[in-house]
Amino acid sequence: MEEKKEKKGTSSTKAPAGATQYKQHLVKFQSLIALFMLCLVIGLLSDKFFTVANGWNVMRQISVNICISVGMTLVVLTAGIDLSVGSILALCGAITAGLLKFGLEIPALDMFIGFTVLGAILAGMLTGTALGAFNGWTITKFKVPPFVATLAMLTIARGLTMLWTEGFPISNLGETFSYLGTGWFLGIPLPVWISGIIVLAAVIVTKKTRLGRYIYAIGGNESAARLSGININRIKIIVYSIAGGLAAIGGLIVTSRLDSAQPNAGMSYELDAIAAVVIGGTSLSGGRGTIMGTVLGAIIIGVLNNGLVLLDVSPFWQQVVKGFVILLAVIIDKANSKGE
């Protein structure tokens, strides 16, 4: 009788463990399942979806979001947020285009500086990195909440873009620059190569370096990280600088692909980036998430955008759908956090 009771006891404890393991696997692969279902539905509704041309088109579009989303992931891992990436993207693209086409004139010194393609690109990337560093400095120095600080930068950068361009596009930037967004290398679009290199570098940083460990530590428990000797302020400034620099790279790709710097470029790009991060499994509370998860989230957002366009859905309804997707992703994230 005792042996039977013991067997019953052991079998009753194994059932919940199996259920928990099943739930963990489901949570782990939920983004892949969602992507598969989304592709299946769109493929059934549109015969243009599963074509080579559309596949490369989606990859090009995703490349820009991946650049921004990788930086956003690093920020969110520290329990922060960056709402300014779309505006920084527009400003850096405009500055690069302006310097490339018109150069820089300094009347006070009676000086004119011309820029090569490489020089203009570096100037744009430097601008994005500097704006990101300013975000980090404002957040750490004055203890301004990241939401407020980056919201302010969103407005500042958008205003500076309008001032720089005077509200008009800067176009006809030359074939050399346009190759950055439209060129191919070894049969793959150049923007895909750029985003792939960024992803690889970010994976190495987050998994193999001290900086990556510090980022996770700050997001997991900032007080404990500070007590263990981590320079919280320096790490946050570095992270926001990286986010600004990657937004600038996204701006270069967009400007190059269009062969034009549009004053209103990057509108709502921060929402797509946040959606990719959350859908990819990164917790908005910080300390939990992966770069590859974000890449998967960016692919889901890219496929969703492409599918809505192919199905001729109104742009207004597209915003509604994406809003619900973000909300659903946050709800799932909170549910997973509670389960843990």
Rank of each mutant, 00 (worst) to 15 (best):
V41G: 09
A276R: 06
L180S: 06
L211R: 05
D259T: 01
I113A: 02
Y179E: 02
A34Y: 14
V64C: 10
Q21I: 12
Q318E: 15
G219C: 09
G128S: 10
W137P: 00
F29W: 15
K8L: 14
E166R: 00
R234H: 11
K207V: 01
F185L: 14
L296K: 11
W137H: 07
T116D: 14
I218S: 01
V75Y: 02
L151G: 11
G136V: 09
E2T: 10
R226I: 03
V85R: 06
F185T: 08
T150P: 02
G244I: 01
G128I: 02
A130N: 02
A123M: 07
V192A: 04
V325G: 08
I204E: 03
G114Q: 09
T176W: 04
D82E: 09
V313M: 13
K23V: 09
D272Q: 02
T209A: 11
K14C: 07
F177E: 04
L74M: 15
A120C: 05
V309L: 13
L83Y: 07
C92T: 15
G220A: 10
L74Y: 13
I253W: 02
F29G: 05
V295Y: 04
G98M: 07
G250Y: 06
L186F: 07
P189F: 00
Y240G: 04
F168W: 02
G302E: 15
Q61A: 08
L89Y: 08
M125I: 15
K23A: 15
S283P: 04
I253R: 00
G174N: 08
G323V: 10
M1G: 10
L99V: 03
F142W: 14
G281D: 01
V277S: 12
S178H: 10
I235T: 13
T96C: 14
P146Y: 12
T255H: 03
T10H: 06
Y269T: 04
F168S: 11
K7V: 09
G293L: 03
I301L: 05
A34W: 12
S268F: 12
P315N: 04
F177I: 00
Q61P: 01
Q30G: 01
A94R: 06
L91A: 05
G212E: 13
S69V: 02
A17S: 08
L99M: 05
L40W: 15
T138K: 05
S12V: 05
I249P: 03
A201K: 13
L311Y: 08
V148C: 08
I274G: 04
N65H: 00
G80S: 04
I235G: 03
G18Q: 12
G302S: 06
A34H: 08
P169H: 06
R234A: 11
A53D: 15
Y269H: 12
M37H: 01
K48D: 15
I204V: 10
G286E: 04
T116Y: 07
A157N: 02
D82S: 06
Q262V: 05
H25S: 12
I331T: 11
F324I: 13
